[in-house]
Amino acid sequence: MNQVNSTILETRDVYIKYAGEAAVKGVTLPIYEKKITAIIGPSGCGKSTLLRSLNRMNDFIDMVTQEGEILYRGTDLYAPEVDPVEARLRIGMVFQRPNPFPKSIYRNVAWGPTINGLEGDMNLRVERALKQAALWEEVKDRLDDSALNLSGGQQQRLCIARALAMEPEVILMDEPCSALDPVSTARIEDLLFELKENYTIVIVTHNMQQASRVSDYTAFMESGILIEYGDTEQVFTRPAQKRTEEYVTGRFG
């Protein structure tokens, strides 16, 4: 298998409009398998909107229209014969604020596999997901407790475990640490390194240190336009565009 730089997801000239106003303008971006791709940029630059289009979460917002193609292993995700439910099975998501269901820890993790009828031992699956999310040791004795009793950082790792339990190929993360304290943030960043062994990760962040620490590739967006994309080290040390340089050196944003 060609593991090095095989493209799993790809946007081609994607435009996304809210009520006629373009939030994403002509973005073409490859996502490489088992790598971490960071999308950075000032708030309102369209990075979250782009991310949500990758597993069709924008379907739920009225007034969103989209042009261009988003290819998942060569198939257009928005082709009429593609079932968005199945697309989301392969492409999971972690949100800005932890959003555990008001259910037990166990049932939070088991919920996705149960409704989708995934086969195999559920207990094992839950344990594996919680271990991958580095939460197992903290919760293994209280799996039946309400997830709402966990701390914010634990809740976010639970949401990561919830996504992992589906064994997706891609995990989209929308500023997953923005509501967390520095210690929890560090734990999740450590986690990302381990996850990339098995998963493709796309992370939206406005924290440039975070992007430079964790990602392999970085895309910089501004006002809906993809200004620059490349190897993370190159983007942060030798940016090709002046705007990128100004942003990563903290002169605006």
Binding site: N55, V85, R88, M93, N99, I115
Partner: peptide
């Protein structure tokens, strides 16, 4: 909260599963 619905949809739920198993119990 809408975030619960989004979380459920992101796990591959149908609208019925989101309504009946997440929103109604909540």
């Amino acid at each position: 909260p809408a975030s619960l619905r989004e979380g459920a949809y992101s796990l591959g739920a149908t609208s019925f599963e989101v309504s009946a198993r997440i929103v109604l119990p909540a």
